[in-house]
Design a protein around this nucleic acid. Structure first.
Length: 265
DNA sequence: CCTTCTACCTGTCAGC
DNA sequence: TGCTGACAGGTAGAAG
């Protein structure tokens, strides 16, 4: 999206419905039309477009959102896709007549416009898991005194930002830590293991193009294939890759947790 | 403040 | 071939 949007003026915003998960901001189209996108960036799972007006456009894909690019000269950035037009909710048109379309069947995504000095929830997010800011001491400090299970704590974006259900399950498996352990009760060595394995899982998953369970695609439209490397996620009843005991499933905080009862303590 | 629970929505799949 | 119910990669906001 950056080559298509950065440095370009958005000439038109077509809203096809009043809301996604939340209502669109007041005067959404008017506040974006005529603005140039100075920079496109990412923080946790939020996409941020800095506009020349000083406002920031935050976009979140939720569970099933995607952006579809189209334009005469965009060959390298477009590909065949199966996004149903009935779920095209927002269409941004740029000065060079390219379009960036937000498609989201489940509508768990959302968009926000925030003024330059207005706070936004990104301010409260924890560190990026692959940055040098995220270390065992940092995690330990943020988990201190927490009674909540480690599985839930790792999904809390204020503890570390950008981990989802799959990678938390896989990281806990690799670190040999039971998902039900009290977050504040991990030993120093366990926290170190957990951070190391989390970074490894994410790095490997990114190299594999992510996990295409259903909706996820790489930017070029290809399927990711990290799902073929899952040790426990979605593998209830399969043998644990380490000890061959059946992989267990439980529900924590309303989400499925997959783990090995004998390897994870 | 922290933790827990529910809501948001469509699509898919397993089981009957 | 339908029908039903469970479940899905996430987050906000209310309630306790």
């Amino acid at each position: 999206m950056a080559p298509v949007l950065e440095g370009r003026t958005i000439t038109r915003v077509q809203l096809n419905r009043p809301d996604l998960r939340f209502p669109f901001p007041d005067d959404f189209a008017a506040r974006i039309e005529g603005q140039q996108v100075e920079r496109l960036s990412r923080r946790a799972k939020f996409l941020q477009a800095d506009l020349t007006s000083g406002e920031r456009l935050f976009m979140h894909l939720g569970m099933s959102g995607r952006f579809v690019l189209a334009g005469e000269q965009l060959g390298d950035f477009t590909h065949a896709h199966d996004a149903d037009p009935k779920h095209h909710h927002v269409i941004f048109t740029t000065e060079d007549a390219n379009t960036v379309t937000y498609n989201d069947p489940r509508r768990f995504g959302f968009m926000e416009l925030v003024g330059p000095d207005e706070p936004y929830r990104l301010d409260g997010l924890g560190p990026e898991p692959l940055s040098n800011d995220w270390s065992a001491p940092d995690l330990r400090a943020r988990l201190r005194g927490k009674k909540t299970p480690i599985k839930i704590a790792l999904l809390d974006q204020r503890v570390v930002a950008g981990l989802g259900n799959i990678y938390v399950c896989e990281a806990l498996f690799r670190a040999g830590i039971s998902p039900g352990r009290g977050a504040g009760r991990l030993k120093v060595a366990e926290t170190e293991n957990l951070v190391r394995h989390t970074k490894d899982v994410l790095t490997e998953a990114i190299a594999a193009g992510g996990s295409s369970l259903r909706d996820h695609r790489q930017a070029d439209g290809a399927l990711g294939y990290f799902q073929k490397s899952f040790s426990v996620y979605g593998r209830q009843g399969d043998p644990c890759p380490t000890c061959a005991a059946p992989v267990a499933r439980r529900v924590q905080g309303g989400r499925s947790t997959f783990y090995c009862k004998s390897c994870q303590r």
